[in-house]
Design a protein around this nucleic acid. Structure first.
Lengths: 337, 337
DNA sequence: AAATATCTTGCACGCGCGGGCAAAACCGAT
DNA sequence: ATCGGTTTTGCCCGCGCGTGCAAGATATTT
């Protein structure tokens, strides 16, 4: 372990001594917008380099009010889109100097403690990519010490203490509905995910409304307890296994791709039918697998990278005025519908 | 925002005043193995509760030498198994009081800076779930300040400064080879992932050796540049598209499920063949999709949860003696081979 | 050249907690 | 009540850096 590498913690004081300046000048040299002359800075940086010094972010966070750390809470590892969001988010954050505390709240009872835990780490913001949280959790969040911002990513929320960054579900779903109508489908089944209290998706409601406006009847819908392809496959199978061809929907409109992938699997392998000939499927998110030769899923793509960048903008501009924002994606037409 | 919730940071001093004890007693009350009388502790805890106090982990890390924070580096978000590992790891860590700093090192040049960054946060250990790192990165790691432990998860490493926790690739691959031989397959194609310098998988080498020992010839093999189903599908398609049935392999043995899923997709939808009738496929990892009705993939399951728990054991027992360990999984036979 | 404006540097103090030891409180036994 | 032993509590010092201001250095103006 001690292969000549600097074992001892080298602090700003050491660098200061080496560079012949004060400790504060050393720390200033590492701050982008600090007032310091270029020559002093480069002299300090050289000394720092040779001593292997880097500022201690923990001490920095303790002394100041910002940690450049955000907590990301995620409770659903079965949905491949979560991985995509996690990847984009961590990339956007890291590129702009933010670190990510990943908190697994798979256990719903753990959501409130997890939020508390994040606040113990002085995170500058808490980002929710999950859904299994209710108002009580939100309230707990705002009680936590050092609590700064609560951002709900890729999901809407009316809570005024919360910042929501998501796609315009209503516009997106109207586009989907128009596509389904234009293509002449006549018997849609809407496949929805779990319903939650605090963070919502207006997709199902919007689709149902749009359909009624055009066709005058309420489309059938069922819901799955989690965004899990395996669960979705089961529910779809249960719903359709005993139907005659005439009773079958001609398209399954899914709240997201996780459900859509499961639906396709079960249509083919459980019901022995063809997609899209017997039943078409349309998703939401555009996960990587949607493009695979196996699925070729028609789906609505969310601009996650843009959304992630906006999130970092928010972190950097501390004004607390209304920061909610919705984005527009676009329908990616493939072969499943 | 100021809805009556305690906006001011409440510190141990406040609780001390409220409970009529010293600050140190307050902090002691929050330490599991501290020497403190039960009644004092409960009195302190009550006061803490009513004030909404929780210890500040940042300050604690600064004052002591442990942060109870680990960095998890991940560079491959296309492989669904990564998500599984991330889930298990964060769960095991969180259950035992550890927090996770998630570092996205998708950009290979960012690996060394990322490691440095982790050390700036005083992490107690750095865990690599990725693969795109080479010896240079490892060396950089050991130079970083506050550097504690470097753990390579689910991948072997001979580096003496590193702790490797992984499945016994050799035993696992021998089991797979035995299965392939017993089932009477005669023309395997080994589909390998990218080759790296510092962290390795002995799967391909072991399979080739085992096959030669039994059949006396070297099986064909190709490699894919990333553990990405889409890329895998392309490579398999390129490799097999112009072959006559006689020239085709009768089984594709894959280094992991990410490759296997892509292989199945392309066998069906690119080559128009059947799995396992025309070409069988066998994977490694047992990702959730492997069990889906679509894939029914025969694959080797790694005991990730056990491995994750062992990892936390290591974090808690600080002895630096040889901590490497391999685990045994088991072959999950489904219908793809 | 003197005076003013501007930039750069140094410093006292504090962020909240932990290690380790000394003082205090407690226990049972004489 | 007294004593030795044991548990419990209090506290000094330091972890490494940021804030905000004042002093020092440099540049600009007339």
């Amino acid at each position: 372990m001690n292969d000549g590498a600097p074992r001892q913690n080298v602090t700003a004081d050491d660098v200061a001594a080496a560079a012949g300046v004060s400790r504060w000048t050393v720390n200033r040299a590492f701050k982008k917008e600090a007032s310091i002359s270029p020559k002093t800075r480069s002299r300090v940086m050289e000394a720092a380099q040779s001593l292997g010094y880097v500022p201690d972010l923990h001490a920095s966070a303790l002394a100041s009010t910002r940690s450049h750390l955000v907590a990301v809470l995620i409770d659903d590892f079965a949905n491949p889109h979560k991985l995509v969001m996690l990847e984009r988010l961590t990339r956007a954050l890291r590129r702009r100097g933010w670190d990510t505390l990943l908190v697994n709240t798979l256990d719903p009872d753990d959501a409130a403690p997890a939020l508390m835990n994040a606040s113990q780490r002085r995170v500058d913001a808490t980002i929710l990519i999950g859904l299994q949280f209710d108002d009580e959790v939100l309230r707990a969040a705002h009680k936590a010490r050092h609590f700064k911002k609560l951002i709900i990513f890729a999901r809407g929320s009316e809570d005024p203490n919360t910042i929501s960054i998501c796609v315009d579900d209503e516009a997106a779903t109207r586009e989907i509905a128009r596509y389904v109508l234009d293509r002449g489908y006549s018997a849609p089944l809407y496949l929805a995910g779990p319903r939650t209290t605090s963070a919502h998706l207006m997709r199902k409601e919007t689709f149902v409304r749009a359909w009624m406006e055009s066709r005058g009847f309420q489309p059938e819908s069922v819901s799955v307890e989690a965004y899990d392809p395996l669960l979705s496959a089961e529910v779809v199978h249960e719903t359709l296994k005993d139907r005659t061809p005439a009773e079958r929907p001609d398209i399954i409109v899914c709240e997201n791709d996780a459900l859509a992938l499961g639906a396709i699997d079960t249509i083919r392998h459980g019901l022995g039918l063809k997609v899209p000939d017997d039943i078409a499927v349309i998703g939401f998110d555009d996960v990587p697998q949607a493009a695979s030769p196996n699925y070729r899923l028609t789906t609505y793509r969310q601009p996650i990278m843009e959304m992630a960048n906006y999130l970092v903008d928010i972190l950097e501009h501390a004004d607390t005025s209304n920061l909610d924002r919705t984005f527009l994606g676009r329908l990616e037409v493939r072969e499943s519908a």
